[in-house]
Write a protein that binds this DNA or RNA. Sequence first.
DNA 1: CCCGGAACCTGAAGGC
DNA 2: TGCCTTCAGGTTCCGG
Length: 271
Amino acid sequence: MPELPEVETIKNELLPRIVGRRITGVEIFWYRIVGYPSPADFASRLIGKEIAGGRRRGKYLILELNGEFLIIHLKMSGSLLLDPASPELKRYTRAAIYLDNGATLYFRDPRKFGRLWLVDNPDSVTARLGPEPLEPGFTPELLAARLKNRTAPIKAILTDQAFIAGVGNMYADEALFAARIHPLRPGSSLTPEEIKRLHPAIQEVLKSAIADKGASIENYYRPDGNTGVAHFQFRVAHRGGQPCPVCGTSIERISVRNRGTYFCPRCQPLK
DNA sequence: CCCGGAACCTGAAGGC
DNA sequence: TGCCTTCAGGTTCCGG
């Protein structure tokens, strides 16, 4: 599932190959992946546009098209593939964007949750997002201030995109393990010491995963069709029943807000 | 404002 | 073997 490190990897690997290219054609194979405008307008307005640059905001990829913005969210199972070597990966293509150098950008998404928007102002899509966890503005003090008055489980808070942008299910579990905090602890109950551990833990798990080109759990592929290796570094995420790498206790799996949540009951006690 | 649960999807996995 | 059910999860929407 693409979270911040996966989208960052896609951005890093895709942009050098598409910036400066002009869009010559667009096909939509599943209309509901187009969030705005209508699929027909989306396609006709894209044709002729040049890809001038791009950036990431949370889990969104934003392509700049000289005054307009193509915004992409991969949700659970989406990939952006640029002429992948394996023809197998062209299955589940929901949209194709043809470029003036003969390359094709495939939007692959088996579960059809992904979305594409073509807008004049990116804020119309991303305005609700909280701070970027790897930007200087995300400080321990900001984290502490935002946790006040939050009674939901810390796991649910960390995956709330309005709280922090880009952290999803896997990296929330990894950060809480690194900070030795039980996922069900109410946000406002965290002590100053715990917040001091949690802040760098969030940044470190994200940076480490970016260095490993993302985690290939389920359907994550890089633009060339390769996978990432970050999941081999996971200490608790998706490791239910395996021994904790710190103390050997069996990793537990519980459900928090209907999301699979992995933690070590000994390293992350509820108290 | 904040919290929790349903809905959107479909392939994979498990039960019988 | 095969049908049926359940699960997975990012985000939005809705009710409390």
